[in-house]
């Protein structure tokens, strides 16, 4: 269940934070029982200054908000650093894509994406009248020369060591310059108040998930760093029934779609991999394999999903 997943995650995070945040906690006077009022029954596990684990009711905890800030800060520092020693790369095999849209569906579900935006899109492409049409799934390209990062006035969107371009939604001022600067229409905006999700109640904001959403800020595909940290593939790759998405580490020169693993350089060489719109110089970290010898012929009318599925995850 989603709620289980989140509370477990929260607990683990708190444990990890405890070591980092302990210095700060020590300086905060621990007056837990001084507070009256009803308890909420939900407990938080903390490492106290003398090294003991204590269970504290959230509502009785005067420090709750300070702890949350502490936790968010630690998550933000982690989110800016990236995953050490990695250089993430994706390869999308256009020959295998048959517009099943399972990628988008899974992406929407796992990121709680509302109906007015998509982090991942599958475009119907036809370069000219006489050339063959094909489906082109598009994530964020996590460019090495990201135009979005270059224009951000407050360093709210940033490029990490491991190649991922992320957003700190608690710093973003909502000027949308990055949306104008991105040539791939990748970035989307929280125009209004974010949709309510019970599962996200009490979840501490983490830039690596972009959740909970923040009104008036920009968001986009993040390569699922939370999944990568756990050694898993991003949701789109996990969900794709045709093995279109390969993810991997450039340093290891390896990419996998879960069932097949390739040397990245060999795969690009053998299959004539390329990057979209190379001429604009953004140096994407997403490569495409051309749509030759396709799994199934291109069929525009071949709808695997109805329109609502296309739009919503509900």
């Amino acid at each position: 269940m989603e709620s289980d997943k989140f509370s477990r995650k929260n607990f683990l995070k708190l444990g990890a934070i405890a070591t980092g945040g302990i210095a700060a906690l020590n300086s905060i006077p621990f007056v837990l029982n001084a507070q009256d009022g009803p308890v909420c029954g939900e407990t938080v596990t903390l490492l106290s200054s003398d090294g003991k684990l204590v269970h504290v009711d959230k509502k009785s905890l005067k420090l709750a908000s300070m702890l949350r800030a502490e936790e968010t800060n630690a998550l933000k520092i982690r989110a800016r650093k990236g995953i050490e020693g990695r250089k993430w790369v994706a390869v999308i095999d256009l020959a295998r894509c048959k517009h099943a849209m399972a990628c988008q569906k899974s992406c929407n579900k796992n990121h709680y994406i509302p109906g007015d935006r998509q982090w991942l899109n599958v475009y119907e492409m036809q370069d000219s009248k006489e050339t063959a049409p094909y489906w082109m799934p598009k994530t964020c390209f996590h460019c090495d020369r990201p135009p979005c990062v270059a224009v951000c006035p407050v360093d709210a969107t940033f490029k990490r060591e491991d190649g991922i371009v992320l957003i700190d939604n608690e710093r973003c001022i909502g000027c949308r310059f990055c949306m104008a600067a991105c040539p791939y229409s990748t970035r989307v905006f929280n125009w209004g108040e974010p949709e309510y999700h019970k599962e996200l109640d009490g979840v501490v904001y983490d830039p690596e998930q972009g959740l909970p959403r923040k009104k008036g800020t920009v968001e986009k595909c993040d390569f699922c760093p939370d999944m990568l940290r756990e050694g898993k593939l991003p949701h789109c790759a996990e969900a794709c029934p045709n093995g279109v998405y390969f993810f991997g580490d450039l340093n290891e020169d390896t990419v996998t779609n879960g069932s097949e693993t390739f040397r990245f350089s060999q795969l690009i060489k053998d299959r004539a991999g390329y990057r979209y719109m190379e001429e604009i110089g953004t140096e994407p970290n997403v490569y495409y394999l051309p749509p030759v010898n396709r799994l199934v012929p291109f069929d525009e009318t071949d709808k695997h999903l109805d329109e609502t599925d296309n739009m919503h995850h509900h």
Binding site: A156, G174, K214, K215, G216
Partner: peptide
């Protein structure tokens, strides 16, 4: 601005590379 309440971020975290 989507977040006018954060206008001070321009001065706290301003990046001189940005045309804004």
């Amino acid at each position: 601005m989507g977040r006018p309440d954060r206008i001070l971020n321009l001065f706290m975290y301003g990046r001189i590379q940005s045309p804004i």
